[in-house]
Amino acid sequence: MKAKLKAECSKEKLKYIRGFVKESIEILEATDLEKEQIVLAIDEVCANAIIHGNQTNDTKQIILEIDVTETSLKVDISDIGLYDPEELAGRNKDIADIVKDKQKGGMGLKLVYSIMDNVEYYIKNNMSICSLTKVLK
């Protein structure tokens, strides 16, 4: 099953996006907790794109394209913003150091990389794309 959503780059849209994702991955034969974690991973990528990639400019959009079967999931999140490679590298920082440094950020991508099987960032046709995949074992 395929599903597509376009949403404005506003933080207030995140709840709506999570609802769309939750509904779209319903057929995935995963536990409720696994599905909630997948929704979280997608929420994190969308929040990064909205806040960091597009500075919550609601005249811009992010596009979610979901391709899901009972046992596999592929999600492409596209926007015209630019991702920060340093932010991607920051996911490797030790959690104890994040606490010590009083950081509010730097944990989202840790979650994304832990929950999904594969995470890929690339640029195609002037769009930044984050491609997430998960195959159930």
Binding site: E44, A47, K102, Q103, K104, G105, M107, G108
Partner: peptide
Amino acid sequence: SSAGVGVFV
């Protein structure tokens, strides 16, 4: 989400 966790952290 991580933003919520980040506030407490």
